[in-house]
Simulated assay, not measured.
Amino acid sequence: MAAEPKTRPTDVPVADFIASIEHPTRRADAEVVCRMLQEVSGQPPVMWGDAIVGFGSYRSPTGDWPRIGFSPRKANLSLYVLSGSPDVAPLLAKLGKHKTSVACLYVNKLADVDLDVLRELAATTWAAMARKYPT
Rank of each mutant, 00 (worst) to 15 (best):
S101E: 11
S41F: 04
V88W: 00
G96K: 01
T7I: 13
Q38Y: 03
Y106I: 07
L91T: 09
V81R: 03
W126T: 00
G84F: 02
V113S: 02
R8G: 06
V81P: 02
I21W: 00
V33W: 01
M36N: 02
P90N: 11
V102Y: 14
A19F: 02
K99H: 09
P86R: 10
V102C: 08
Q38D: 01
R26G: 06
K99T: 14
A51T: 15
R35T: 15
A28W: 02
V53G: 04
H98I: 09
E120A: 14
V102W: 13
A30Y: 05
A19S: 10
T10Y: 05
V117K: 03
P66Q: 03
R26W: 07
V14T: 03
L77H: 02
Q38E: 13
F17V: 04
A89G: 08
K74M: 10
Y133P: 01
P9Y: 08
A93Q: 15
W126P: 01
P9L: 08
H23R: 14
S57E: 15
Q38N: 04
A19V: 05
I68H: 01
S101Q: 12
A15Q: 09
P45M: 11
R26C: 06
P9A: 12
D11A: 12
V33L: 12
L105K: 13
L92D: 11
L95Q: 01
G56T: 12
V117L: 00
L110I: 01
D50C: 02
L91I: 11
N76Y: 15
P24S: 05
P13F: 07
L37Q: 00
P45H: 09
K109Y: 07
P24A: 05
M36T: 00
V81C: 06
E120Q: 15
R26Q: 13
T25S: 08
L82D: 09
I18C: 05
P66D: 04
T10C: 04
P9E: 14
D11T: 13
P66T: 06
L91E: 10
V40T: 06
C34K: 06
D16K: 07
L110E: 00
I21D: 01
S60W: 13
R8A: 13
D87M: 13
L37F: 06
S85N: 14
P24C: 07
P72A: 14
F55S: 02
A89R: 15
K74F: 08
G63R: 08
D16E: 13
L82E: 10
A111L: 04
S71M: 03
N76A: 13
P86D: 14
T25W: 00
G54H: 06
L91F: 10
M47K: 10
A30V: 08
Y80N: 01
T25P: 03
W65D: 04
S60R: 12
